[in-house]
Design a binder for these strands. Structure first.
Lengths: 108, 108
DNA sequence: CATATATGCAATCTCCAGGTTGCATATTGT
DNA sequence: ACAATATGCAACCTGGAGATTGCATATATG
């Protein structure tokens, strides 16, 4: 696990419709091979493999070899990391807004 | 509000270290001009303006003209939209059905 | 063993994101 | 009016993302 570089890389990995769709499909917890993942997609197998490599690089999925297949499962911790970053930003916004309200209340 | 296209565009907007830094700074709720935002950054003013345009395009910031200045404020609703997407994925994973499927698929 | 299946590796192509420079426009200040 | 400030607009350059094709390798199956 050397992927906790910066949240930007994580968001960048999610910032592609194909990859986002892969994550959405893998969210059911099922492990899928590359061929299975690519079955409904209009792109080549190699393009798909690259996308999965990107997701792997930021820790959003985990790879397991089963025979000649490479099965991919979602890794929810990376999702949590991204969500935590957004929560922090959101919390800071809500906090400062609360302080602004307090100021208005006090100052009149 | 025509920005609720797909979450991928939102994540893509966040998937750049410069833009992520801008959002982090704007999370305090203060409105800042382009010159103010660019003061600590090692990039040109035009590059910064493009980044702010990207954030504007997905609804992450709001622009207000004050005299000759263009002030930017964060728009927390877009942050919430991104967080909600991650929550949905996470919730699906955490569901018992998803975990059971994962166990069956992996463990055999 | 021979063959089909599933994936890995590598070279290549194209396009656009992110950056720059130069000039134009609008607003403030003297 | 004139100069300084703040931004907008446009052309341009470059590296890398996303895709392709072709070939190599490993595993299952007859």
């Amino acid at each position: 696990m050397q992927s906790s570089d910066s949240p930007a890389r994580l968001f960048a990995a999610l910032g592609d419709p194909t990859r986002l769709g892969l994550i959405a499909r893998l969210a059911d917890g099922k492990a899928r091979s590359i061929a299975q993942m690519g079955e409904p997609l209009p792109i080549s197998r190699q393009a798909l493999a690259k996308h999965l490599d990107v997701l792997l690089g930021v820790g959003l999925v985990r790879r397991t070899r089963v025979g000649r297949e490479a099965r991919f499962v979602m890794e929810p911790e990376a999702i949590h990391a991204a969500r935590d970053w957004l929560d922090a930003v959101s919390a800071q916004w809500d906090g400062t807004l609360g302080r602004l309200k307090a100021f208005v209340e006090e100052g009149g």
